[in-house]
């Protein structure tokens, strides 16, 4: 790739326009807009784009990242024009970018604590929910049990786990344990259903291959049935992760004293919309990072697929 191909992109032009706007367009409000923080934030993104452009060997990847850059810089530019530059929206509900970034940096310890709290619950409930895989493998080996447990899982899985919260609070000692229970249920049923359906759809020819190789029952389950159902299992696992985050943040808004949902709910109750917005964006980042981590595992385990 030539240097021109690598670096001549609209995203970088937009970055320059953004910086110039920040520096030379006069401020339309009397609030301190903290443009240094805004420019700093945009620069961090720009540096990431430049690094990818310089190092990546894949043209598609560069295009994808710089396209993403275009979207981000456009949003940032529009945001700044609407808020601090022309003062078109309510300042208390829409703080300038610099204020948001500044608030985020100030709150890093608190946010980190909340992330740890939320992720701790998610991981605990999620890993427990993955018990659905061995349970599914076990149940699905018998036709009749598999059919009836499929129906039961369908019924129990259809109940939105959030409705268990009030009952869970009566049942369990801490709100944290209730959250773990809810995440467990949100993961367990989809994973179980995915596993059962995966096992039921294993190609018969693969099972015949296993038989003529004289595989033992355990060996057949671990070396043939499990890998063959992995795609379906991941469908369930990804669905479970998605639901888990929705449920956890909701639960944290209802009754928790910690966590990202609590952070957002608490500060919006106090009328601090800067932190509310920061919290919302952080939740987005955490969810994306988590699903990305799971998708990496999925790619690794399913690398034999096209």
């Amino acid at each position: 790739m030539t240097i021109k191909e690598r670096f001549l992109r609209y995203a970088h032009l937009l970055f320059i326009i953004f910086v110039l706007t920040e520096l030379f367009l006069p401020d339309g409000t009397r609030r301190a807009p903290l443009i240094n923080y805004a420019i700093g934030f945009a620069s961090v993104i720009e540096i990431m784009l430049l690094t990818v452009s310089a190092l990546s060997g894949c043209r598609k990847k560069i295009v994808m990242f710089t396209d993403l850059g275009i979207v981000i810089f456009t949003v940032l530019l529009v945001w700044e024009l609407m808020t601090t530059k022309f003062n078109l929206v309510k300042p208390i509900l829409f703080p300038p970018l610099g204020v948001l970034v500044h608030q985020f940096i100030e709150d890093i310890p608190e946010i980190a604590n909340n992330i740890v709290s939320s992720l701790g619950i998610i991981i605990q409930g999620y890993v427990l929910g993955l018990i659905g895989i061995p349970v599914g493998l076990f149940l699905a080996t018998d036709k009749r049990i598999s059919s009836i447990s499929g129906h039961i899982a369908g019924f129990l899985g259809a109940i939105p786990p959030i409705v268990y919260i009030p009952y869970g609070i009566a049942l369990l000692p801490t709100f944290r344990s209730v959250s773990v229970l809810v995440i467990f249920l949100a993961t367990f049923w989809p994973v179980l259903m995915g596993t059962i359906s995966g096992v039921n759809h294993v190609d018969k020819r693969l099972l015949d291959s296993a038989k003529v190789l004289n595989l033992s029952r355990t060996s057949t389950i671990f070396h043939v049935v499990l890998p063959a159902s992995l795609t379906q299992i991941f469908v369930g696992a990804n669905l479970g992760l998605c639901i888990s985050f929705i449920l956890l943040t909701s639960a944290e808004m209802i009754g928790a004293r910690a966590g990202l949902g609590f952070y957002v709910k608490n500060y919006s109750d106090l009328g601090d919309y800067t932190r509310t917005i920061v919290g919302i964006i952080i939740i987005g980042v955490v969810v994306v990072a988590s699903t990305w981590a799971v998708s990496l595992i999925q790619k690794r385990l399913l690398r034999w697929q096209s």
């Binding site: 020819r205 291959s209 003529v212 070396h223 992995l230 697929q305």
Partner: peptide, 20 residues
């Protein structure tokens, strides 16, 4: 009685495990 280690089999398709 059933399959045995004395016989090797080659099927028309899907003889191999795709994950290996």
């Amino acid at each position: 009685e059933g399959t045995g280690r004395d016989r090797g089999v080659v099927f028309q398709q899907y003889a191999l495990f795709p994950w290996m």
